[in-house]
């Protein structure tokens, strides 16, 4: 479904992504873990079209999307649920969700309510607060809203940037369960960027560890959980980073 080949991205003079390559299959949950500054968010931003890669290619369903703009990429069914939720805090929960369907609103007003109801089934709490401004929601509720808003675009590929950030463990568990449900019920392919390595590896089929802009380890999640380098660096072991 998605092929990322030798992608290099810069922030000004800073070489952030140094030849990232991986492939993603349909209906898969792929976790990207790593320390702060490893380039995880930049990688998602590059796939989403926020940042332009200087070298390499990103192919989605056979089409090169590497040089396309964010708006065009959203229309193709790729959505990014950004870090720190970034919901529209002045707008109501329902308005936030409706704006998630912005690019297809004019063509499918009738199906919009159906999609909103589908999101309410996944996140019943949102229905009870649909008129409340997004800014008044708790962190967990905002994360649910951010995911629901992403789902409103009917994504085939959903990318989530640190959805567990700042949330209580029970809420993180709920959110990870929802991701699993999305894959099972809707066949949504998911890329999950997480610092909560344990939670990410538990829900993902495959995963990679990023270090300093490169992929250091890639493989089945179960195998990564047993990998001593991952265990040492992220699951309570001794060493602080994985040599690239």
């Amino acid at each position: 479904m998605l092929q990322v080949k030798d992608v290099h991205t810069y922030h000004g003079f800073l070489h952030v992504l140094k030849g990232i390559s991986f492939e993603l299959n349909k209906g898969e949950i792929f976790a990207i873990v790593g320390s702060n500054g490893a380039g995880k968010s930049t990688l998602l931003g590059t796939i989403a079209g926020i940042y332009q890669q200087r070298e390499g290619s990103i192919t989605y369903e056979g089409e090169d999307i590497g040089k396309q703009k964010v708006e065009a990429i959203v229309k193709k069914g790729i959505c990014l649920v950004p870090e720190r939720r970034q919901i529209f805090d002045a707008l109501s929960v329902k308005d936030n969700m409706m704006l998630g369907a912005y690019h297809r609103y004019r063509h499918s007003k009738r199906t919009l309510q159906k999609d909103i109801d589908r999101c309410y089934e996944l996140f019943p709490k949102l229905k009870t607060m649909e008129d409340r401004p997004g800014g008044l929601l708790s962190g967990g509720e905002q994360q649910m809203l951010a995911i629901a808003r992403g789902l409103m675009s009917n994504p085939k590929l959903m990318m989530l940037d640190e959805p567990s950030l700042g949330l209580a463990p029970l809420i993180v568990k709920d959110i990870m369960n929802i991701l699993d449900q999305l894959r099972e019920e809707f066949g949504t392919t998911i890329i999950l960027v997480e610092q909560n390595v344990k939670a990410a590896l538990k829900v993902a089929d495959r995963a990679c560890v990023m270090e300093r802009g490169e992929i250091a380890i890639e493989g089945e999640s179960k195998a990564l959980m047993k990998d001593p380098r991952v265990r040492d660096a992220y699951l309570g072991g001794k060493s602080q980073s994985i040599p690239v």
Binding site: E71, I87, F88, A90, L99
Partner: peptide
């Protein structure tokens, strides 16, 4: 109006609005 809310979304968070496909 939907378009008005999209404008408001740009005011509130321009980068998030772009991620919704709003120009």
């Amino acid at each position: 109006t939907f378009i008005g809310k999209a404008v408001t979304a740009c005011v509130v968070n321009r980068s998030a609005a772009r991620l919704m496909g709003i120009k």
